[in-house]
């Protein structure tokens, strides 16, 4: 019986730092945070939405993070799965857990505190609390620097999704879009719960001065011009004054480390 194999395994155990993990990340901002904490080298696979930083693009993909299957995840022989809220289905995560893999489900809140909580949770899972504290502090400072003064006028904003031509949804309360508008100092004029279909009349009544269009939506329907041509939006002040603004979907709506970057970009567009 190969005693040398036992020796080799023991040697490997000793030689490998205890923190070495094989990590699978589920959710674009989760991947970004792991790389920002300097643990990108331990990531062995990512979900389809993880396209940032560029290094993550070279990694194997295991499918869309909300519609996973257990075996492709296990095929990467992970020791740790970091799952954004909404990753799943939950039954698949449980199967992965039952196969002996540690699955950490991350919190989600579309506020500045929510970003920090997510960074800290990932830091704890990776035994990288100090780095996480630094990244959280850095993000907090960047967000604070971008916060509009309390007495500033609040532009009337709306964030729209279009799943197909003629089918426009707007972001109501309790959505990432609403959180982004708040942080940008705008007033979300679409007062509904969740993402809801938008009618021409509701769009007119809401009278947004600025319409935010996530980049993946613009890509899907053929650019900002196509959104501007949507009949339900055509008569809004924002379209008439040409105030349709493209935002980076993942940076703005992922609520990860690139949130300040997305807010700064929006600030420049609003000023310009």
């Amino acid at each position: 019986m190969g005693w040398w194999r036992v020796l080799l395994a023991l040697g490997l155990l000793v030689a490998t730092p205890a923190a070495a993990q094989r990590i699978v990340t589920l959710g674009s901002e989760v991947t970004e945070i792991v790389f920002a904490l300097g643990r990108g080298a331990q990531v062995v696979a990512v979900d389809d939405t993880s396209t940032h930083p560029p290094d993550a693009r070279a990694l194997p993909r295991i499918g869309y993070f909300r519609a996973l299957a257990p075996e492709p995840v296990l095929a990467q022989r992970p020791t740790l799965v970091l799952a954004a809220a909404g990753a799943g289905p939950e039954a698949v995560l449980r199967q992965v857990e039952r196969a002996g893999v540690r699955v950490v489900r991350l919190p989600e809140a579309w506020t500045a505190d929510g970003v920090e909580a997510k960074i800290r949770a990932i830091g704890r899972a990776l035994d990288a609390e100090a780095a996480a504290e630094r990244l959280a502090a850095q993000t907090r400072a960047a967000l604070a620097a971008l916060a509009p003064p309390p007495d500033a006028p609040r532009p009337r904003m709306m964030l729209v999704l279009a799943t197909a031509p003629g089918r426009v949804l707007a972001a109501g309360q309790d959505t990432a879009g609403d959180g982004f508008i708040r942080l940008a100092g705008g007033e979300n004029v679409f007062r509904a719960q969740g993402y809801r279909p938008l009618s021409a009349e509701a769009a007119l009544a809401a009278a947004p001065e600025v319409i935010l269009v996530p980049s993946h939506v613009a890509r899907m329907v053929g650019g900002l011009e196509a959104i501007a041509r949507e009949p339900v939006l055509a008569r809004t002040p924002a379209v008439r004054q040409g105030r349709l603004i493209l935002i980076d979907s993942q940076a703005a709506l992922g609520f990860g480390p690139r949130l300040p970057e997305a807010l700064a970009a929006l600030r420049r567009r609003l000023a310009g």
Binding site: A85, P89, A91, R94, T175, Q193, G194
Partner: peptide
């Protein structure tokens, strides 16, 4: 209609029929 984005996605994955969730 009244579900949130996440709920709706979970529902539509399930409605399409999948055996990946069998425990």
């Amino acid at each position: 209609y009244i579900s949130t984005d996440t709920e709706l996605r979970s529902l539509s994955v399930w409605l399409l029929g999948t055996l990946a969730q069998v425990e």
